[in-house]
Amino acid sequence: MRKLVLAISMLALAASAAFADPILDRQALMKERGKIAGGLSKVVQGDESFDAASVLTALQALQANAEKLDVEALFPAGSDAGDTTASPKIWEDMTGFKATEDKFLADVKAAVAAAPADADALKAQFNAIGSDCGTCHQTYRVKKG
């Protein structure tokens, strides 16, 4: 019995630590996403040379990032207040927000599955991914300043 109580306590602690502050957690996830996308953008723009293995690794990291975004856990009711740029539209249209995130994940998965062989192929895939980012930012993000 004591082991069971200890195990349950450890699980509860781990669960609360995983999403202790949904605003900070989602901001960290989005910063990571932006950093990965920024690196891919440099390749698309020709600022960095195309390397198929590096590009695929970055796309896989972007997919892993997108798969971590748990809308219910990271955008719970009440987490629209505080130091956040998340728009109230997220909570007004949670179905639309989830659909936008699902499309992003699908487009990233498609890019990973296609494993771009050159910069032109990456550019086509990255344009779709970037469009998803833009749609979400325009609809579900409040600009600061």
Rank of each mutant, 00 (worst) to 15 (best):
L29K: 05
S16C: 09
G46A: 11
K31A: 12
V55Q: 00
E67M: 12
S41Y: 15
I23M: 03
D51T: 04
K35W: 12
K31L: 15
D47L: 13
I36T: 05
S54R: 12
A37E: 14
E48N: 13
D25G: 04
E32V: 11
A58D: 05
T57H: 05
Q45I: 10
K35M: 14
G46P: 08
E48K: 13
V44P: 00
D21T: 04
A58G: 03
K31E: 15
G46Y: 04
A58Q: 04
E67R: 06
R33C: 12
L40I: 06
R26D: 03
A52V: 02
D51R: 04
P22V: 02
E32P: 03
Q63E: 13
A58P: 02
F50M: 01
L40K: 00
E48P: 07
S41C: 12
D21I: 11
N65Q: 08
L24Y: 03
K42L: 15
D25Y: 10
L59D: 00
K31W: 15
L29G: 04
Q45L: 15
A61D: 08
D51V: 07
R33A: 15
L59I: 07
L24I: 06
A53L: 09
F19M: 04
V44Y: 00
A15D: 08
A61C: 10
K42C: 07
Q45E: 07
S49F: 10
A28M: 14
A53M: 12
G46I: 15
D47F: 14
A15R: 06
V55H: 00
T57V: 13
D21L: 06
D70G: 05
S49G: 13
L59W: 00
I36Y: 02
